[in-house]
Nucleic acid binder design. Sequence first.
DNA 1: CGCTTTGTTGAACGGGTTCAATTCGCGTGG
DNA 2: CCACGCGAATTGAACCCGTTCAACAAAGCG
Lengths: 253, 253
Amino acid sequence: MTSQSTPLAQRLSTYTDLSEGELSVLAAFHRHQRRFAMGTDLVHEGQNQPPAYILSKGWVCSYKVLRNGGRQIVDFQIPGDFLGLRSVLLRSANHCIEAVTDINASVFRAVDLVGTFETFPRLARAILWAISSDDAIVEERLVSLGRRDAVARTAHLLLELEARLQSVGLATKAGYDCPLSQYQLADALGLSAVHMNRVLRQLREEGLMTFRSGKVIFDDFDHLVHVADFDMGYLDYAGTKHKIDPRIATLGG
Amino acid sequence: MTSQSTPLAQRLSTYTDLSEGELSVLAAFHRHQRRFAMGTDLVHEGQNQPPAYILSKGWVCSYKVLRNGGRQIVDFQIPGDFLGLRSVLLRSANHCIEAVTDINASVFRAVDLVGTFETFPRLARAILWAISSDDAIVEERLVSLGRRDAVARTAHLLLELEARLQSVGLATKAGYDCPLSQYQLADALGLSAVHMNRVLRQLREEGLMTFRSGKVIFDDFDHLVHVADFDMGYLDYAGTKHKIDPRIATLGG
DNA sequence: CGCTTTGTTGAACGGGTTCAATTCGCGTGG
DNA sequence: CCACGCGAATTGAACCCGTTCAACAAAGCG
């Protein structure tokens, strides 16, 4: 297993090509692997000084619980995503993080991450880009909840996940494996589970996409993009990479 | 006018006490003041390499426009807030920024900001804290749009603004000056302007709060907090400040 | 196997939208 | 000083998207 193969390295490479040195620094952050079973809470709300992780396998969700009993999933995390990084700067965690599937995650100390920023400024830029991209995702979700109807909202989320998964090699325009239940999807989209079911049925019956038995299949990708009003610009996954230092050789295939 | 008096310095001081040196560094970022008239676009969506600002006077909003014509305001910014900082790391702006009132804002180069981080790690921490806090705000707004009804959502936003304004000396538990129109409020809360009006009337008639002629007045603060399910923990404005030992001052700690 | 979680469907209800009309506030020009 | 114009605020009524309640089927799992 080369350092190139970690999902985080793969994701960052959509932003800029990384050198051998940078890749090995990145690999070093994967030293302390931990496994968590499906349903485990990695971080609970209000927890002090929670640790940060890099997710390398499986899916995770961040959510908040309301007094009235409802819950809102803020975002799903997939391999290559950071977990709980924001909580490091605030004095306590402001949301829960739960494993959606069995997962592998690497604990790391934020101090160490910041420490490498001085020596590896290109890597720093790439990581800050990834973090900014995560923020853009939350922002776009907010737009969905505020101004898109249930069908567009659903299509938008599942298309976004396609783009994100594709950047770590886990999806194609045909579809991807999706471990989410309709309840979790509903909690992310601000819908009731009942209506979630009806929306998914509608998308299926209209020949747009199929969400069933752990798989998302796009039956008419382009039409779905139109229905969702999906413009992946906010993810900043443009084909053109940042060329920063031509002296550094890129890793060949 | 001492450096202490800039809204940003005031805001950061709720996190940690800053030294004279740190305060003057902060003041240096306010050198290039610009004025923008109400309604001006500081940044438009898709703009390349947009500048970053520190808002020192007036209100601003960040929003996205949808294909169907609707718009969603992601957040309002008040004195002491950063504008367009995220867009610096992504390759282009992913939302518009518009002046809600006439404003004063200071342009600065993100490079210079990062440059000071090495020499003033405590200041760096404070600024990263402020940025994280902004993210937490967007996240909590998302929760509102997903799982709170119109009344709670409205109360929650107006209470949040009270807390934020209070940290820069522009509000008390009695109320504050609020230049927002009902249309802008509606666009931030994912509601129609018509319903926004009815919700505000209800809040007024129930003796909870009054939104009228540019002022927000809290008629029953505690009850309103309960109705909104408002817990300001996510803002991390706890009364206790961080005392950071200067000897071990590092970013990640 | 039985039990629990997830998915599915029907019917009634309700919060919020939409359409439409009227009023208010206020700056501007006659 | 008043008339006008225009955006913001306000109110009514009909409609609809999504919720809620309720029941049952299907699928995993010990």
